[in-house]
Design a protein around this nucleic acid. Structure first.
Lengths: 163, 163
DNA sequence: CTCTAAATGCAACTAACTTGCAATTGCAAT
DNA sequence: ATTGCAATTGCAAGTTAGTTGCATTTAGAG
């Protein structure tokens, strides 16, 4: 990386879009821009509010949908929250192939497995690279008689700023 | 407990309703009845379908709301599921004071802490008395800088019947 | 610069609740 | 057993969050 030649943080994401033959449009760039401003997840509604009536809810919806199916965003839900969250995938060049069409469609892609912690005061969501110990899985399978195929672990708390 | 004198499993729940000065009506008894038939969580919609058009969706809604705020039911959401689930609290006489009004309102009550595993094929939900190891909490607090106040752990898999 | 499949805006629609209001009913006090 | 009335119910209408059809516009390959 040469000095004095600033790298566009959006570049790898736009590359990925082009590779997926998804047009790089103003709407999609504006939505992606919001995700690049910080490591903050957005919901359809929060993005729409944040972007003003500059463009339609359905456009935000379809931009999110396109970015998700192209593997730039991942989608998750939090217990107790009605809205679906989206967050930027860190290394789009490494993540798996795009999943099914439409929001809510199950992703076949497996973006780097992780969990979340949400601040109950300011709503900040952080990613956690920590996971459930393997031993627990065995215990759960024994206790329930199920074979486990996925798990979701979410924490709620007070972030460093709000403490 | 005398032999030959069958105990009504609904009794402690009805007692709790009366204690909360909540009328014991036909609707509420029918809804409670479904929960007493098995250790199965229900959603507003699944209950409404199950009860037929015998009564209105809003009546099921308000029955659920009443049973929940009276501490007979607990409410939870599962990642990837749109609907809110309700399940019977095991020992209503032991659980904490009723929470706020209306579905979705944060409960102040703390029914016996537990997690769930859902069958991805038949939708069966089982309760798990297994929890996240305390050590993990510390690791998460260190890694994130948050102070943890709650956590949610949900498993998805294939149940004994569907395997 | 042209052309066309893909993307957008608008409006309409769906799912899952949620609420206002008039009619009805559980149940406590006769 | 009857009464009174606040609590509950049914119906209809409203809300939130998301989704889709279609006519118009546009990114970007050639």
């Amino acid at each position: 990386m040469k000095r004095g030649e600033p790298v566009d943080p959006a570049a790898p994401y736009l590359d990925r879009l082009r590779k997926a033959k998804v047009k790089v449009t103003a709407n999609r760039q504006r939505v992606l821009g919001r995700f690049l401003e910080g490591d903050k997840p957005w919901t359809l509604q929060s993005l729409h509010r944040s972007l003003g009536r500059e463009f339609d809810l359905s456009s935000v919806y379809r931009a999110l949908s396109a970015l998700r199916t192209s593997g730039l965003l991942e989608e998750f839900r939090l217990p107790g929250e009605k809205e679906t969250f989206f967050s930027l995938i860190k290394h789009p060049e490494k993540s798996a192939a795009p999943g099914a069409r439409g929001l809510g469609a199950k992703t076949r892609a497996h973006p780097h497995h992780h969990h979340h912690i949400v601040c109950r005061d300011c709503g900040l969501v952080s990613h956690l690279d920590i996971c459930v110990p393997a031993g627990l899985m065995g215990k759960v399978e024994d206790a329930s008689g199920f074979r486990i195929t996925e798990h979701h672990l979410e924490f709620k708390g007070v972030c460093g700023n709000c403490k």
